[in-house]
Write a protein that binds this DNA or RNA. Structure first.
Length: 543
RNA sequence: GCGCCCGUAGCUCAAUGGAUAGAGCGUUGGCCUCCGAAGCCAAAGGUUAUGGGUUCGACCCCCGUCGGGCGCACCA
């Protein structure tokens, strides 16, 4: 509907003002019903360019517009120079037929042919995923789903590092628990992992490998056992959240295949890397930073920045058109370095896109709660899902803009239960199916498209308009990487449905009308179901 | 000290630079002999932290101030 209006406005304006570069035409949905079903501020934007008062410009555009009366019943000029449009009911009826004819209504081809890579979670395997990782995981997965519904192909990737200091300490921690299980007095290493899962890993290792490993804390079996079991656990948790990764990428491969070395050589060739004090530095001052940054320490060990750059080069070389990174706010200062490097290495840095989300503040018993994986005083994602379920967990992380701090009150989440907003959407869907089941058992419903013209009640027309907006809602959420926009949309659809349900009877009405309203129910159900699917939330037909 | 993010109803949060800033929770009061009351309707609640600026129009953009969060390592 938007595209139709934009095309007609564009035609009219370019005929009227041939020499003028038209601004992007925007269609918006007025808040006040008396302002119609769609509005544009085109005349206001053109007023300066064409040197005429806005209302005159609006009048000229309206006079020049060639619209089908089957689609638009009125074009009004209002306020400072808005043009308001009213949709014809018959157009809405056609839209409902479109919805009913297309099982995957909402999918578009806007991003068809574009290969996306979304990298997210990327937690090193040192412990179970916590609520802190939850926002990352759910945001990344949902953005990937949105791209898919917008027509793109998407690869979900998990990037990890199993070689660093953290992992060494992890192995030593397993060793300590292993030795302790044998009755030996071996303390946890400095900064070791205190979580109970470490003892479980040690116990499992002992069951498989016997008691002979205690003498050598550096035996790689400790670390390997930990990594294996923790990854299994992480995958199980993601699975519960309806998240499936396509690829796992080990940072170590960048060393093995020479990517790290190659990037360093190229940066040196461009005089962006140099030696000083035994270390290799990245000339970030060339990109406006106050200080240069270290790429390789004097010990010969690279900092994380170098593999980060090499990894992004690798992603682009692997043939992805756009690579999205999902980052917590703490990474905000480092990714510009990666972008600068990518650009100077000959790639378009616009192909790297970053979704930054603000931290989750855990509130427990009314006070902010400090968490640390190492100290094991965290709340795991699994524990959270045990309490509130996967649907509520996903919904909770998605319902707010990524850019705002998310306050996660454990007590509130636990008692949310039936009151939780996600149930409002699921309830609407279940209610529709309850009526449909009854309608089927009555056996009086025929699917005759012309009956749709009986849908004329204001509540019916409002619901139809909202349903027709669904594809645009998905695109808006996808392009902005803001899934909460889709939640807001679905909420509006549910409100419109409940209002319709309240105002209009379905069963027991005159058969033609009952049939038409049943079709409206089917269309609503399809939008609700597809919308919830995009969010990774179940759509139960009974609850 | 420098950089980034955030300040909107009592609380948690919405709102492409658009018209009268909206929901949920909480509070108050209505609505089931009738398709699911996990619902609907209504009331109350706001100088959008603050002072300037930009323009036809600012919660939104720019500058300052105040308050909160996160970064500013040869840690990841």
């Amino acid at each position: 509907m938007q595209t139709y209006l934009i095309d007609r406005l564009h035609d009219a304006a370019s005929r009227l003002y041939p020499g003028i570069a038209l601004p992007d035409i925007q269609i918006e949905k007025p808040r006040q019903p008396e302002h119609g079903d769609a509005a544009t501020n085109l005349a206001l934007m053109l007023t300066k360019l064409v040197g005429k008062p806005p209302r005159n410009v609006a009048q000229e555009i309206v006079d020049a517009m060639d619209v089908d009366a089957e689609h638009i019943t009125a074009m009004e000029i209002a306020g400072p120079g808005f043009i308001n449009f009213r949709f014809s009911p018959s157009w809405l009826h056609i839209k409902l037929q479109d919805i009913l004819a297309d099982e995957s209504f909402g999918k578009s081809t806007k991003l068809a042919g574009i290969k996306y890579m979304v990298e997210f979670v990327s937690a090193n395997p040192t412990g179970p995923l916590t609520v802190g990782h939850g926002r990352n995981a759910v945001l990344g997965d949902t953005v990937a789903r949105l791209y898919e519904w917008a027509g793109a192909t998407v690869n979900r990737e998990y990037y990890f590092n199993n070689a660093g200091r953290q992992m060494r300490v992890l192995g030593e921690s397993v060793h300590a628990r292993y030795a302790q299980e044998l009755g030996l007095d071996v303390p946890l290493p400095e900064g070791g992992y205190e979580g109970e899962y470490i003892a479980d890993i040690a116990h499992d290792l002992r069951t498989r490998e016997g008691d002979g490993l205690a003498s050598d804390p550096t035996n790689p079996k400790f670390k390997e056992a930990a990594e294996h079991l923790i990854f299994e656990d992480i995958k199980r948790t993601l699975n519960r959240l309806q998240i499936r990764m396509d690829t796992f990428f080990n940072e170590d491969d960048l060393y093995k295949d020479g990517s790290i070395e190659r990037v360093l050589t190229e940066l040196r060739a461009k005089d962006l890397a140099y030696d000083q004090d035994g270390a290799v530095w990245f000339r970030t001052t060339a990109f406006g930073k106050e200080k240069d940054t270290v790429l390789v320490k004097s010990t010969g060990e690279p900092t994380y920045r170098l593999p980060d750059i090499a990894y992004h080069v690798k992603k682009l070389e692997r043939g992805f058109d756009v690579c999205v990174d999902v980052f917590g706010a703490d990474h905000i200062a480092t990714y510009p370095d990666v972008l600068s490097a990518i650009q100077t290495l000959g790639f378009d840095s616009k192909r790297i896109d970053v979704l930054i989300y603000q931290f989750v503040t855990i509130v427990k018993d009314g006070v902010p709660y400090k968490m640390s994986t190492r100290k094991a005083n965290f709340i795991t994602l699994d524990e959270l899902m045990d309490e509130v379920g996967a649907d509520v967990t996903r919904f909770f992380f998605l319902m707010r803009s990524p850019g705002t701090h998310l306050e996660f009150d454990i007590a509130q989440a636990k008692e949310a239960g039936e009151k939780n907003p996600v149930f409002y959407l699921q309830y609407a869907y279940a209610r529709i199916h309850s009526i449909l089941r009854k309608a089927d058992s009555d056996g009086a419903i025929h699917e005759l498209p012309h009956q749709l013209t009986l849908l004329n009640h204001p509540s019916e027309l409002k619901l139809l308009k909202t349903l027709a907006d669904f594809p645009d809602a998905i695109l808006s959420a996808a392009m902005s990487k803001e899934p909460h926009r889709l939640i807001n949309y679905l909420n509006e659809a549910a409100v419109d449905f409940h209002k319709f349900y309240h105002d209009c009877r379905i069963l027991g009405e005159e058969p033609n009308l009952a049939a038409a309203r049943t079709l409206l129910l089917n269309g609503t159900a399809r939008v609700m179901k597809n919308g919830l699917t995009v969010l990774g939330i179940s759509a139960p037909e009974q609850m």
